[in-house]
Structure formats: C-alpha cells, structure tokens
Computed example of a mutant assay.
Amino acid sequence: MMSEIVFYTNPMSRGRIVRWMLEETGVPYRTEILPFGQPMKNEEYCSINPMGKVPSIIHRQKVVTECAAICAYLADAFPQAGLAPPTMDRADYYRWMFFAAGPLEAAVSNRALGFVVPEERRRMIGYGSYEDVMATLQRAVSGNTYIAGERFTAADVYVGSHIGWGLQFGSIERRPAFVDYLERLSQRHAYQRAAELDDAAMAALEQSA
C-alpha cells in the first residue's frame, strides 16, 4: 500500500526514538529490523539511506531519515494524533527539538568520546560547553510540564529519549529536573508499548546471533 509506513530500525539504536513516535501516532506500520554491519551497508538499504544507518522510514514512497526530522514529519503527517502545536505556537516546539538534535547530541557525544572543548575555542563550536548545554536543558524541562508547554508533543519524544539514554548510560548528569521530566514521559502508554516492542526485538536478535 502506498500509504503504509515502513520502519527500518535496530532495537539497540536511535530507532527506539522513532518507535516511540510511531506508537504515539497510533497509525499502523511495518517494521524491518536490520542487524548492524553488512545488512545496513548493503546496496539495497543504502539506496534508502546512503549513510547506511537506522532509523529510516518510507511513507507514501518518500524516504525520511534523521530522528528529529522523522518525529517532525510524523507529527505533521498525522495531525489527528495531536503531536504538534498549531503552526503559530511552534516556537518552543522547534527550538527544543532542534536544540536536542544539535547542541545536546553534539555535547553529549563529544563528552562520551573524551573530547573537551578548550575554553578559548568555545566560540568556534555550536554548543559552547557541556556545562552550558546541561544548564540550558535543565531550565528547558523545569519551566512547564512538557518541553513546549503544558501539552505533550513530538519534541518531548525526541528530547525525552536523549535524556533517557543519557541518564541510563551516565552521559547526562542525574539532576532531579531530568529524572522528574523522564518520569512523566515514561508513564505514557505509547512509551511503554514502544519499549516492550524494542526489548522483544532485541531479545530475538540476540537469540539469532
């Protein structure tokens, strides 16, 4: 079917973000699990995502890659799910989704790799310093119930996933504001369904290895 969503993922990847987002939309989709290594780098999949990485989706014969882009796309493609604010009210929605896609992910990744930006070079890099990013993120999740106000949106899926991984693996400081925010999100049925599906897929991959 032309309208079918095909979801390419691995349960030990950023695909978990998109799984949660898909469950929030409530629309049907077909999952294609790709093991790491050659299956992601073969010609067939690289014709979909030349990076040879997951996640990717195909919807109405169009390919979308990059987690933030997929979340934003799905929110717009399925407005009945109510996962994006009205167009004129999207300032915080866009701001924090792309803050997580840019400064947050870069700062956390660099820190995990042991790279610290020298103080005199902070003007050269978009996020400045890890400390600045953490302070900004704390303020962002402390002001309202959700990242863009009192309404849950796709931005919470994206930001909340980064915080969840960061707390799990120790790459984000365990501040009360982050723990409280993630606790609110983890009560959502879609969050729990997505986790169950990915955990089951991960167990199946491990058994077949």
Rank of each mutant, 00 (worst) to 15 (best):
W165Y: 14
W20P: 02
P39T: 09
A140K: 11
I48G: 04
G82K: 03
G37D: 05
S171Y: 10
W96P: 06
E4G: 07
D199C: 07
Q187G: 13
T65M: 10
L137M: 15
H189R: 13
Q187N: 08
R19N: 03
A112P: 07
L22G: 02
S208G: 00
F78H: 09
I48W: 12
F78W: 14
R184L: 09
N49M: 05
G102S: 15
L197P: 00
Y127P: 10
C71T: 03
T9R: 03
R111E: 08
V54A: 07
L83Q: 10
F36I: 10
I33L: 06
A201V: 05
A203Q: 14
A68I: 06
T87C: 04
D199V: 06
K62Y: 02
I57W: 06
A101T: 08
S3I: 01
A148T: 09
K62S: 11
E44R: 12
G160M: 04
G26S: 05
V63I: 14
P103H: 14
R193W: 00
N144V: 00
F78P: 06
A68Y: 01
L104T: 11
E150A: 12
G15M: 05
L74H: 02
R139G: 15
D89T: 02
S3V: 12
E66L: 01
E206W: 02
R175K: 15
R60C: 08
D92Q: 11
W20I: 08
V18N: 01
V18I: 15
P176G: 07
R14H: 09
G126L: 13
L205G: 04
E4M: 14
A194L: 06
M88L: 13
M134D: 08
G143S: 14
V159R: 01
